[in-house]
């Protein structure tokens, strides 16, 4: 909570800053349109009444891609200084997936592993 310590940017820095923002914006727009497209594709597949198995598999894959785009481009996980956040999220996700898999196998399906 120290006092503000701001120096005016030099022209070169300003130019650099603007360029970075431009690239950032391009990333945002690209990933946003990709996400829209993926959502559209998911709806389209359902509308075309493809084989439910294919739809389920494809939708799960596309959802995963969307999650990654969301985290990395919209929630800044790709940026510098987010190492710990990335580590925590990945480790947490690893555990969560392991737990869910375990629940599905030994609670929901209910057969002991190895007997199938």
């Amino acid at each position: 909570m120290a006092e503000l310590n701001q120096k005016p940017l030099t022209d070169v820095q300003l130019k650099q800053r603007k360029l970075e923002r431009k690239i950032e914006m391009r990333h945002h727009v690209t990933s946003f349109s990709l996400m829209i497209f993926l959502t559209f594709a998911a709806f389209a597949m359902v509308a075309l009444e493809l084989d439910p198995l294919i739809i389920t598999a494809a939708v799960i894959v596309m959802a995963l891609v969307q999650v990654i785009l969301q985290f990395y481009y919209f929630m800044h996980m790709k940026d510098k200084g987010h190492g710990f956040i990335r580590l925590f999220m990945l480790v947490g996700m690893y555990f969560a997936i392991a737990f869910v898999l375990c629940y599905v196998l030994i609670v929901w399906i209910g057969l002991p592993i190895g007997s199938v």
Partner: peptide, 24 residues
């Protein structure tokens, strides 16, 4: 700390998880 999350079912060996799960 990491391993701590991978071993919870050892409290439940006699619940009937099956031999494979128990072994893991």
């Amino acid at each position: 700390g990491f391993f701590g999350f991978m071993v919870w079912a050892h409290h439940m060996f006699t619940t009937g998880l099956g031999a494979t799960a128990n072994a893991i």
